[in-house]
């Protein structure tokens, strides 16, 4: 029997993506200056690559987990992350076993998994907290080209619309295709059909978007988009609101102190340096 589902449905995925993109859940980092959030992220994303010490990496991983908690990352992203981590672990052991590796191979792979995990956690925390405008303004503040910063915010503006269109096209395709009579082992026939339709659904969406972009480009031209790229005043106005507060510095300082602490702790109890 079919039932209405509020979670794990297409509608839910859509809402989750929108919530993630627009930082609607709030959290610590969403109240900070976006420039500091980006720098904070860069620190956490770079540091793990300077060590092979598993203790330190585990510590950084924990820091990542705490940040994710503070940033209030939603269930969809977390779920995908945890799923990825489990698959990865599983794969590490299979790979080590199949290719005749020993503990050393496993450790090397675990190290990589931990590094990637710590970086992913920091990315989730940072980008869930930055709504499109803030991210694009931070990039503009770091003197990235206007084309790229505008692209980021325009991409976000289009995201909900594209998701909506995708859902409609996919639904239409499914209704108009023959239903799968025999689902097969673990429903593989069903899954194959879904994958096929997902790919096919992109075709009409690309064409529709291409068709609608003409108006967008004309409108950008008429509203001084290319003018602003030459003239610097627009950039100044746009960035005038950015302020680094005590809170920003404090978060950065605490993070640096914690990282130093983790490294110190790792030096005391090193694991497979």
């Amino acid at each position: 029997m079919r039932k209405h589902h509020d979670v794990l449905s297409v509608e839910w995925v859509k809402l989750e993506l929108i919530r993630t993109a627009y930082a609607t859940r709030g959290g610590l980092f969403s109240t900070m200056d976006p420039r500091m959030v980006v720098m904070w992220y860069l620190v956490l994303a770079i540091v793990p690559w300077f060590t092979h010490n598993l203790t330190v990496l585990a510590g950084l991983f924990v820091l990542g987990c705490i940040s994710v908690g503070l940033a209030r990352v939603g269930p969809l992203l977390l779920g995908l992350f945890v799923f990825g981590l489990i698959v990865e672990t599983f794969y590490v052991f299979i790979a080590a076993w199949l290719f005749g590796g020993d503990t050393q191979t496993v450790i090397a792979l675990v190290e990589l998994t931990l590094k990637l995990g710590a970086v992913s956690l920091a990315s989730m925390a940072a980008f869930v907290s930055l709504d499109p405008e803030k991210l694009s303004d931070a990039m503009l503040a770091f003197r990235m080209p206007q084309m790229i910063t505008f692209g980021v915010s325009y991409g976000y503006r289009m995201l909900p619309i594209l998701i909506e269109q995708f859902a409609t096209v996919f639904e239409g395709y499914r209704l108009r295709s023959a239903p799968v009579e025999n689902k097969g082992f673990l429903g593989w026939r069903m899954i194959t059909q879904w994958c096929r339709l997902t790919v096919l659904s992109f075709y009409p969406i690309f064409l529709n978007t291409a068709k609608s972009v003409r108006t967008t480009v004309e409108s950008l031209e008429a509203r001084g988009f290319t003018y602003a790229a030459v003239d610097g005043r627009g950039r100044q106005i746009r960035l005038a609101y950015l302020r680094l507060t005590a809170k920003d510095w404090a978060v950065m300082a605490v993070t640096l102190a914690l990282i130093a602490g983790v490294f110190w702790f790792g030096a005391q109890f090193p694991l497979y340096r």
Binding site: S212, V213, T215, T216, S219, A222, R223, A228, G234
Partner: peptide
């Protein structure tokens, strides 16, 4: 000023205020 028939495609910013401010801000 020009408002298009497919005016949805003319909106380029995420929020309404940003959208309205887009022109004046670009011209500084």
């Amino acid at each position: 000023g020009y408002v298009y028939q497919d005016f949805h495609n003319q909106l380029v910013r995420p929020t309404v205020r940003d959208e309205v401010a887009f022109g004046p801000v670009n011209y500084g």
